[in-house]
Design a protein around this nucleic acid. Structure first.
Lengths: 228, 228
DNA sequence: GTCTATAATCAGATAGAC
DNA sequence: GTCTATCTGATTATAGAC
């Protein structure tokens, strides 16, 4: 069948389009991470991408849609990472987290790896922070199928790990899974990371370790853990 | 001496002024807590207070100054609360926190009481949330003596408790005190509280207990605590 | 689809009467 | 000090040529 030719051309044009849009969402992602939705202006986005503002609006119908696309992309990246943790690779199967007896392949290990990944992304300035309060963006996100789909998939994966980790006695079983889930999500916009970064007293790795500690072990001193 | 009369009148006028400004900061406080600095408009503030926008500007020179006044007030309230915990009242001396052996009068007990108070205020919609990213407001706050004074006093009090609690083996001594301080401050803008509140699955008290648990005990299951 | 130029809107701030 | 009415600037969004 020679129906192959037209699709090829279409694919090329589509690829060009997607590459441009990819460049846009990438810039939006950075700006969103740096200053947040309200402080980010469409002019800045256009300037950073290197195209005219009007051209932006040919790709995205509003500032909210722009931010939404970036959030969707971030969500899909997260989903891909979580899926990767569920793939039994050699690294995942054999690794164990430093100074704990927790295997990377265990539900608890995956939760910790996910959290660490989130913090790394945030410190690298690649984690778009949605203002928990802004309503116009929230409305757009809630109405976006791709975003909500991604959010649900991520929630499902994490939720399953949380419940497994609770059964295995790793996560405090007295906490509702939803509370654990929200607490993990909240690491994506934890101001402690920024504050510690601004203080310039610690390396990124140290900051991550500290936040991981407060997140999983809490502020209280821990009695010696029972060996595993 | 009959120099008493003029001061009386002046005091009265001052009181009127302060009462009005108190009403303004109170409204700002509520709006700041509800929607944040960016989403809050000066028109809304004027409407809620019940005066014209121009009148607002007779009291405060800018939107930032408006928010700053509210933040200062909140900070002073916090300072007063912390001071109260340091006063040896009967309640403080004898109380002990439910289901733990931690005395309210101990440094750890005071830290937990402070955190609980913060969460209660937040749930009551009385905790003005400063956007960690907004720069114009941050600049104003940094330049405000009353705010910075309050911030430092609060930080000093909490910092002292933190170091004492670390010496007593209550707070994880491997965490830098500043990281602990930031982590406690962050409870004032913890999105987990809002998320859980929105889910409508839990009472305010339950939400507070969950956040207190994740904050101090962490997400991980804890082995049986050594008795105290 | 990209551009320049411009419209439209909204919100912070002010003028000037009372 | 408070008001109404207005200014000003910034920002989102679009018109129309190419």
């Amino acid at each position: 069948m020679n129906t192959a030719a037209p699709p090829v051309k279409k694919t090329f044009k589509t690829q060009m389009l997607e590459a441009r849009e990819q460049a846009i969402t990438s810039s939006v992602n950075r700006l969103l991470s740096e200053k947040g939705f309200d402080a980010m202006t469409v002019d800045e986005v256009a300037a950073e991408v290197g195209i005219a503002k009007a051209s932006l609006y040919k790709h995205f119908s509003s500032k909210e849609a722009l931010a939404c696309a970036a959030m969707v992309q971030a969500m899909q990246k997260a989903e891909a990472f979580l899926d990767g943790l569920n793939q039994p690779t050699e690294r995942n199967e054999q690794g164990s987290l430093a100074s704990t007896g927790i295997a990377v392949s265990s539900p608890m290990g995956k939760l910790m790896a996910s959290t660490r990944w989130t913090l790394q992304l945030k410190l690298a300035g690649q984690m778009p922070t949605l203002p928990s309060q802004n309503s116009s963006l929230r409305a757009t996100l809630m109405a976006s199928r791709p975003y909500m789909d991604g959010l649900m998939k991520v929630s499902d994966i994490l939720g399953a790990w949380i419940m497994q980790a609770q059964k295995e006695g790793r996560i405090n079983a007295s906490l509702p899974p939803i509370a654990v889930l929200y607490t993990l999500f909240a690491r994506a916009c934890d101001p402690v990371v920024e504050f510690l970064k601004m203080s310039e007293l610690h390396t990124d790795e140290e900051i991550i370790e500290m936040v991981m500690t407060t997140c999983f072990a809490g502020l209280s001193a821990r009695p010696a853990e029972t060996s595993t």
